[in-house]
Simulated scan of single mutants.
Amino acid sequence: MRSTGMGRPTPAGRGRPFAAVAAVAALTALATVCGCTAQPTDGDGGHRSPVHISVTGTTPGTPGASRTPAGSDDKAEPGRASPSVAPAVLWAPGDTGRDVRELQARLRQVAWLFDGPTGTYDDLTEEAVKGFQGKRGLPRTGETDAVTWQRLRAMTHEPGRWELYLMGGQPAAAPDPRCLTGRVLCVSKSSRTLRWMIDGRTVSTMSVRFGSQYTPTREGVFNVYWKSRHHVSTLYDSPMPYAMFFSGGQAVHYSYDFAARGYAGASHGCVNVRDEAAVAALFAQVRNGDKVVVSW
């Protein structure tokens, strides 16, 4: 034992009680001022933080960009519950692209849409979405939100390539090497497209369809040998406007049936075009003797 010089002896090495209390009080005050006090935990050692719940959709392949409501804020006010967040809007009127095609193809599968797919979220698509939503007790917004998309996906299958491009609009395949010189109608069966090319440059591209397995469109290199603006088939008694003949009775021409039914039908061997304005412009430019290349 040693004397402190102030009365009662204190065990060696114990320090001064009053000084220790004062030091602890000072440190506590400093920690409070600095915001370093311990926070309540959620039971696993982590700090609690406001929870923000949102519903988002997922799609196979490449989904469209999700949208969040304007003015949304993911910070909860202290002492108040976080507001509920509406499902994110994936696609809405005016949107375009491959994902809109998939939406339209799936709506066709459940008989809510009968036109397209076009790849453009038009008024017909909006009405189809409203009908689908109303049938299932969802808000009839006409916009495809995450909940609507998930319900539609659960009822349908992944559309195949030709379901997505039933009415045309698919990307054109790379041109056949035989198309790279001169004036050429370059027809690709694999992508179902026709390129009008001059000296290797693509002037225009359009969707086309071909003959069935019983009346196939011939492949090879040909030349346009006759043009007939108001032609009518003598064999099938069917109109063939803007006909450009290249192999026997086979021609590139406009098809009313293709315009109405898309790839649900087939030609009798001709190369059908569904865009009348496009084939009219093509007919005005093509000359007798221009090359025609039909390849797979």
Rank of each mutant, 00 (worst) to 15 (best):
V292E: 00
L124R: 14
T120F: 00
V100P: 00
T10C: 03
T59Q: 12
V252Y: 05
S188T: 11
S191A: 15
G119C: 08
W112G: 01
V273Y: 00
Q213G: 08
S72C: 08
V232W: 15
Y214M: 11
Y214V: 11
E127W: 06
E77K: 15
Q109E: 11
Q250I: 06
Q150G: 05
R153P: 01
L185R: 00
A173C: 15
P171F: 09
P216V: 08
T125F: 02
A259D: 04
G45P: 01
Y121F: 15
F18Q: 14
G269K: 14
A88S: 15
M244N: 00
A23W: 09
N288V: 15
H231I: 08
R140Y: 02
P177L: 07
A38C: 00
Q170Y: 05
G265D: 13
T215Y: 14
L164T: 06
R98S: 12
K291I: 03
V184W: 00
A266K: 02
S3T: 00
V221H: 01
A86L: 12
L185F: 01
S49E: 10
M240T: 04
Q104L: 04
P60F: 14
E102W: 00
L235E: 12
T141H: 10
G131N: 11
V184I: 09
G134C: 02
K130W: 05
A81Y: 09
R161A: 08
T10A: 13
W296L: 09
H157Y: 13
I198D: 13
G35I: 06
A31E: 11
P9W: 01
A251I: 01
S72R: 07
L103V: 10
P60L: 13
T4S: 12
P63S: 10
T215F: 12
T148Y: 04
F246V: 05
R151W: 14
H230I: 05
R201K: 15
A264M: 07
R14A: 00
E127G: 07
G168P: 04
M206N: 05
D73Y: 04
A111V: 01
G13I: 04
V33T: 12
K135V: 07
V221T: 12
F258M: 13
S49D: 06
L235F: 04
P50E: 06
G94I: 03
T215V: 04
G211M: 12
G169N: 10
Y254C: 10
L185A: 08
Y254D: 06
Q213W: 13
A29H: 10
Q213F: 12
P11G: 04
V129S: 02
G61P: 05
T59H: 13
R161E: 11
G211E: 09
E158Q: 12
H52G: 04
G262I: 04
S54R: 10
D275Y: 03
T181A: 15
P117W: 02
P11L: 08
K130S: 03
T32A: 15
T41A: 11
V184Q: 02
D95H: 06
A88P: 02
Y254A: 10
T41F: 03
W91H: 02
